[in-house]
């Protein structure tokens, strides 16, 4: 049975890794619902959070393929009840509507939304929560004219996990990973002779 799975990937900080991860999904024609990349609790190690809708069998195979990637240290996959997860959304609504209809403000309060910017012409609300809460607020605001909406990728913490501090020591034994070298020549077109 297909369901939502959150895949958590601990990786080295390497250029091009996001592509290497993405093609594991695109090769099998699987749509990524949400993808977030951020630092992790361990310095120099990145954490990808990927959400897809698939059967467990497929997710397990994908996770093993991801773990096989060279710069990937560890992959976990979890169903929604095994994680604490949040998404954030921003809503832009015409100020006129909000100020005139007090009811809207009450509704926003009930949904735990908060105004981030208040201007004469528009107000931007922010809501952090799970998918239903965020979608709920869209429904509420739509009748009053939702000018713009954007939702962030999911971030998630695995309930059972102890974090990566100890894990990374297992991986390391002696040699830490190389530091990332970026292209430092890109803005030096004028000063370099080439042919």
């Amino acid at each position: 049975m297909k369901q939502e799975y959150t895949i958590t990937v601990y990786t080295e900080n390497q250029i091009g890794l996001i592509n290497k991860l993405a093609i594991i999904f695109t090769r099998r024609k699987i749509n990524i619902e949400s993808l977030n990349t951020s630092p992790s609790e361990v310095e120099g190690i990145h954490r990808f959070t990927i959400v897809i809708n698939e059967t467990e069998d497929v997710v397990r195979k994908l996770s093993r393929q991801i773990e096989k990637l060279l710069d990937v240290l560890k992959v976990d996959y979890n169903t929604d009840d095994e994680i604490i997860w949040q998404e954030m959304a921003l809503y832009k609504v015409s100020a006129e509507v909000i100020t005139e209809k007090v009811k809207v403000e009450r509704l926003l309060r009930e949904q735990g939304a908060r105004a981030v910017v208040i201007r004469k012409d528009y107000i931007i609300f922010e809501c952090t929560g799970q998918r239903e809460e965020i979608n709920n607020l869209i429904k509420i605001l739509e009748p009053y004219g939702l000018l713009e909406f954007v939702r962030s990728a999911r971030i998630a913490i695995i309930k059972k996990s102890d974090g990566f501090h100890n894990k990374v020591k297992e991986f390391e034994y002696k040699v830490p990973s190389e530091t990332l070298v970026e292209n430092e020549f890109l803005d030096q077109n004028e000063s370099v002779f080439s042919m």
């Binding site: 091009g16 292209n183 020549f185 890109l186 077109n189 370099v192 080439s194």
Partner: peptide, 19 residues
């Protein structure tokens, strides 16, 4: 590969080999 400062400029015989 072409000179680093030419990466992404469609330089002669440049192609995105890694990708």
């Amino acid at each position: 590969q072409v000179f680093a400062h030419l990466l992404g400029t469609d330089a002669f015989q440049e192609t995105d080999v890694i990708n």
